[in-house]
């Protein structure tokens, strides 16, 4: 069962003696439902990774970094988890995120999606969905609303969208919330 897009899985392992980009490794690419599950069942669950590690699933040709031309003007819907949620929620939310991506859950706005990242951090893990144009309000909001619904977050929970350009200059603010 062919996917709409080919997706690349990346793994980041923090080693401060090396440059950031040297810690980023392409694991594999998948373009069928069957290959996606073969990949998923062969890698560690996100909750089993050590702190400082990331997984990223991005469309083929887009590197999981702000600097990529397809990310440069974009941003991310960010889900921040509390420390205790690593064992109760992280793996389920990350899998739902992956299924939204490969299943093209955002209808026509799926073309705005670049990928998703899970950051494993001592302070609290994070999951984000990256889109390519932070100024494209209609797409960003549609993706945010559908994503929140797929994660099963309560209507009281608020998730925010941040432009990478703001994050890069540390002037972090929510450009949109749903």
């Amino acid at each position: 069962h062919q996917l709409q897009n080919r997706w690349a899985l990346w793994f980041f392992k923090n080693d401060s003696s090396r440059a950031w980009q040297d810690n980023l490794h392409l694991v594999t690419k998948v373009d069928t439902v069957e290959d996606f599950w073969a990949m998923y069942s062969h890698i560690q669950l996100a909750s089993k990774l050590s702190s400082g590690c990331d997984y990223a699933l991005f469309k083929d040709g887009i590197r999981p970094m702000w600097e990529d031309s397809r990310n440069k003007w974009g941003g991310r819907w960010l889900v921040s988890l509390a420390k205790h949620q690593r064992h109760s929620k992280l793996d389920r939310l990350w899998l739902e995120t992956l299924l939204c991506l490969i299943g093209e859950s955002f209808e026509d706005h799926s073309r705005e999606v670049c990928g998703a990242v899970v950051n494993i951090r001592t302070k609290g893990d994070k999951i984000s969905v990256w889109t390519q144009e932070a100024e494209n309000q209609a797409s960003v909001l549609h993706i945010g609303r559908v994503y929140k619904e797929h994660l099963g977050l309560s209507t009281k929970a608020i998730i925010g969208y941040q432009a990478h350009a703001d994050t890069a200059t540390k002037s972090i603010r929510n450009k949109f919330v749903v």
């Binding site: 069962h1 299943g103 859950s105």
Partner: peptide, 20 residues
């Protein structure tokens, strides 16, 4: 057409043995 799959469809493949 665009290949869209909902989560239930995708999950059905999770534990399916690979075809050889």
């Amino acid at each position: 057409g665009k290949k869209q799959y909902d989560r239930e469809f995708l999950l059905d493949f999770q534990f399916m043995p690979a075809c050889i």
